[in-house]
């Protein structure tokens, strides 16, 4: 039995600290954020509940939502056509509203591999994939994705044959990209759940392929 199991007199708070608190932001940043947030609430621009809901909403976005869209496109040719040509209508079926942005879905094929970047900031298909990964916002990726995409892909462990063309799409404020990865061979007859498990966030940004069938078995 542990030594302090019966020791209830050692004076510290028994509610304990079950949660490792985030590191605090710089004081000046916290002051500015708190001030802006409170002023926006006082002015009736946003409510505390709006902020809570916005955080909740961003947490529901991500890989699994994107995977549902990809798998629908893999299994429903009419939907795929709509996704590639007028993505707004296709996304509405998933309750996703990109407005005022436009989403361009780019399809990976035997001959073409697509990859997405935002060289100027970190524009990303947020209504589908949520907050972009940290590397997507960093200078390394932003600078080099457009200059030496194959080298960058290698850093993600993605090796492409020389005859597969790489197309890099530079996002902006109004136009966002999503990669439609290639459906792997050998997945005929799979259920949607099985297929969705193959699709990763990175495969929809185009820095990697979908999970390999071996990875799923493991």
């Amino acid at each position: 039995m542990s030594e302090h199991h019966h020791d209830h007199d050692h004076g510290h708070d028994h509610d304990g600290k079950p949660i490792q608190e985030d590191e605090l932001p710089a004081l000046e940043a916290q002051i500015l954020e708190t001030s802006v947030r409170e002023l926006l609430i006082e002015k009736g621009v946003v409510s505390a509940d709006d902020i809570r809901r916005a955080i909740e909403a961003m947490e529901t976005r991500g890989e699994s939502l994107g995977a549902k869209i990809v798998v629908r496109a893999w299994t429903d040719p009419a939907f795929k056509e709509k996704l590639l040509t007028s993505s707004d209508d296709a996304l509405m079926e998933f309750g996703i509203d990109m407005r005022p942005m436009e989403l361009c879905v780019v399809e990976n094929t035997e001959d073409v591999h697509n990859m997405v970047v935002c060289t100027l900031c970190s524009c990303y298909p947020r209504p589908i994939l949520g907050i972009p990964p940290a590397w997507y916002k960093r200078r390394d990726y932003r600078s080099r994705a457009v200059r030496e995409p194959r080298a960058v892909l290698q850093e993600f462990g993605t090796e492409l044959p020389d005859n597969r063309q790489v197309r890099v799409h530079d996002s902006n404020a109004d136009l966002r990209y999503l990669v439609l990865p290639k459906r792997p061979e050998g997945t005929e007859g799979w259920t949607n759940d099985q297929l969705e498990a193959l699709v990763t966030r990175d495969s929809m940004i185009g820095v990697s392929d979908v999970r390999s069938l071996d990875e799923l078995v493991g």
């Binding site: 985030d22 590191e23 605090l24 932001p25 916290q30 954020e33 955080i55 060289t119 100027l120 900031c121 907050i131 990964p133 940290a134 590397w135 960093r138 200078r139 390394d140 990726y141 932003r142 600078s143 080099r144 457009v146 200059r147 960058v152 850093e155 993600f156 462990g157 530079d170 990175d202 820095v207």
Partner: peptide, 23 residues
């Protein structure tokens, strides 16, 4: 902000992940 095409370091997809803090 105009980084496109400039020389820069390697991307480290493991180290350069970060779960956003609540703040």
């Amino acid at each position: 902000q105009d980084y496109g095409g400039l020389p820069a370091g390697a991307v480290d997809p493991v180290k350069h992940e970060h779960v956003p803090t609540h703040w």
